[in-house]
């Protein structure tokens, strides 16, 4: 599959995520991979967005900044890039067509 240079990302289409949140911490189970993951507040906020809609990393940064009331600076940009990379490596998200 060819991936656009600035891809959109979303939770993998075949996966359903099951969530449990205690305070600022969450655990999430993917029905596709069968794995359970621990997520802090930033990570869970990001994954919930990608569960609702596809988006680019820039949109993810804006969303995290707005939701958590933090600066959309270069540090958050690097964090979001790392987050997407980790989620993809764990089989939680996939690159997709922008219109999906």
């Amino acid at each position: 599959m060819s991936v656009p240079q600035t891809p959109h990302w979303r939770v993998r289409k075949q996966a359903q995520l099951r969530w449990q949140t205690w305070g600022d911490e969450s655990v999430v189970f993917s029905t596709l991979t069968g794995d359970t993951h621990y997520l802090d507040l930033l990570a869970s906020t990001g994954l919930r967005l990608l569960e609702r809609q596809s988006c680019q990393i820039t949109e993810l940064v804006e969303h995290l900044a707005a939701q958590l009331e933090i600066d959309a600076d270069s540090q958050l940009q690097r964090y979001a890039e790392q987050l997407v990379e980790n989620f993809a490596a764990l089989g939680l998200i996939e690159a997709c067509d922008p219109c999906v």
């Binding site: 449990q20 205690w22 305070g23 911490e25 969450s26 655990v27 069968g34 359970t36 621990y38």
Partner: peptide
């Protein structure tokens, strides 16, 4: 932390997966 406890217990379960 409940979330971290859950991860530990799941990892050491005999049949959680």
């Amino acid at each position: 932390s409940k979330a971290q406890t859950m991860m530990h217990v799941a990892f050491h379960s005999f049949n959680y997966g």
